[in-house]
Design a protein around this nucleic acid. Structure first.
Length: 457
RNA sequence: GGCGCGGUGGCAGAGUGGCUAUGCAACGGAUUGCAACUCCGUGUACACCGGUUCGACUCCGGUCCGCGCCUCCA
């Protein structure tokens, strides 16, 4: 078996991944806050960790992939106040849309997709432990984590406490003992969602939910914790602090998760795509115009840790690359693919810190081979692992498939007329028919078996 | 200001101390009535300046430029 090497943000080195328990690998990735459609940047995280989970499954008997849904958050409250929709309706709706959109991008649903609101009592338990261990304190209805109580704080993002205080731009709330202290629990007004707690009716801070859900579903420590690079600080730093301190550990950052994996951002014209900048493209909208596989491949076209500058042109280019694979699969439609392992070179590229550009180079190299049942098997095996080439080639390429705006019978008739014109050497007429069909988005291919037509998008 | 990442051929994007990345586009050719599809072929790129080395795009130092985190954010 090839060693899987992953870049560990905690050590800032590519390391051979060694599971705590080789019989059961545990992966957690921070999921979305559900108050809106996911943009393509959110989708990158889902695709990257879906791929990682799939690669892990090829290597280990059992993998549990947990990715949460954050369904309690001030932005959800704001969205509810704005639209008048009930909070539960908003979170249910956008959770469903998120899962549908990610499925369209070839992501399997995580093995466990816990919701924050279902784990409030687990969060309260951790907060109580933190208070008991003097790592947290209650103040004016809030409970805060006391950062100075965790000397190792800052180890993931590589910043010292001093720097952080010096760089603090936020006004320090009066209830904080230390400017770096962060909220574990905060009070809710009557019109805000809240749960009863030892500190009054309130709701959790953001960071505590991941500490609770990862521990409940995976136990500590677990193997890999992932998320977007922007979560490194403060979210992941705070998760580490909470989870370690809740277990009385103050000097070992790996007591929570052993390996930290962070994906890079999706950019737009050189700037980070974000909801606050307004330069985002929704996965949901992009799926209207592009096949999910083309979008997935585009998200994997750069290495996952590199920034990825988004453009429609890239999606179109990757669609064309997929077309070439599908054309070959179409040529091999009559062959029964043999059972093949994922080609070694593809596996090696994936095992090298998920080097997906290299994977595609290897996939393209496969196309240099003659058509054969073995080639078909290899392409399908590799495609299955990275989440492409899962469609019927005929359908993908649009061959002879009618739809609402395409009348197959009418096209066949025109095609026959054209064939007749060609036999009569009436090329003016035959070209006219081709232009006519082209105007309807129909492309003609003359093959040894006669003319074929396909829908082009 | 602190911390971090990056600057590769038209575009996208890997990688390596000496040997073709790959894709898309472009161009030439085969095929075609003409096309499309397909196939074959073509491109001598690694920000700048020093250093190490027999040899650096790849290592080291510096310069310039871009980006990210430090505040909700995948």
């Amino acid at each position: 078996m090839l060693d899987l090497r992953l870049f560990n943000s905690l050590t800032r080195e590519k390391e051979v991944f060694t599971p705590i328990d080789p019989a059961h690998v545990k992966l957690y990735a921070c999921g979305p806050t559900v108050y809106n459609y996911a943009h393509i940047g959110n989708a990158r995280m889902a695709v990257v960790f879906d791929l990682l989970s799939k690669v892990l499954r090829t290597q280990f008997l059992k993998v549990t992939y947990v990715s949460n849904i954050t369904d309690v958050d001030d932005k959800i409250i704001a969205a509810s106040q704005e639209t008048g929709e009930a909070i539960a309706d908003i979170t249910e709706k956008y959770t469903r849309i998120y899962n549908d959109d990610m499925a369209a991008l070839g992501c399997d649903q995580p093995d466990i997709q816990p919701r924050a609101t279902a784990h409030i009592s687990d969060m309260i338990t951790i907060i109580e432990r933190l208070i008991a261990g003097e790592h947290a304190y209650a103040s004016k209805g809030h409970v805060l984590f006391h950062v100075p109580s965790f000397p190792a704080y800052g180890g993931l993002s590589g910043r010292s406490r001093d720097e952080q205080v010096a760089g603090a731009r936020v006004e320090v709330a009066s209830y904080k003992k230390d400017p770096a202290d962060f909220v574990l629990w905060k009070p809710s007004s009557d019109d805000e969602p809240g749960w009863d707690s030892p500190w009054g009716r309130g709701r959790p801070g953001w960071h505590i939910e991941c500490s609770a859900m990862s521990e409940v579903h995976l136990g500590l420590p677990f193997d890999i914790h992932g998320g977007g690079a922007d979560l490194k600080f403060p979210h992941h730093e705070n998760e580490i602090a909470q989870s370690c301190c809740a277990h009385g550990i103050t000097d070992d950052l790996t007591a929570f998760a052993k390996v930290w994996v962070h994906n890079g951002f999706v950019m737009v014209e050189g700037e980070k795509m974000s909801k606050s900048l307004g330069n985002f493209m929704l996965a949901h909208d992009l799926l209207e115009d592009h096949p999910g596989e083309a979008l997935r491949l585009t998200l994997l076209s750069a290495h996952y840790r590199q920034p990825l500058d988004w453009s429609i042109d890239k999606a179109v280019q990757n669609k064309r690359m997929l077309d070439r694979f599908y054309q070959r699969l179409e040529q091999m439609a009559e062959m029964d693919a043999t059972e093949e392992a994922v080609p070694e070179a593809v596996m090696a590229a994936l095992c090298d810190d998920l080097n997906t550009p290299q994977v595609m180079a290897e996939m393209n190299a496969l196309l240099k081979n003659e058509n054969s049942p073995a080639l078909k098997g290899k392409l399908l095996a590799a495609g299955h692992l990275i989440g492409i080439l899962q469609h019927d080639p005929q359908e993908w390429l649009g061959y002879a498939i009618g739809s609402d705006d395409v009348d197959a019978a009418k096209i066949e008739a025109l095609l026959q007329a054209r064939t007749q014109a060609r036999v009569n050497k009436d090329f003016a007429r035959s070209d006219e028919i081709r232009d006519e069909l082209a105007a309807q988005g129909i492309e003609i291919e003359d093959t040894p078996e006669g003319a074929k037509w396909k829908k082009i998008s």
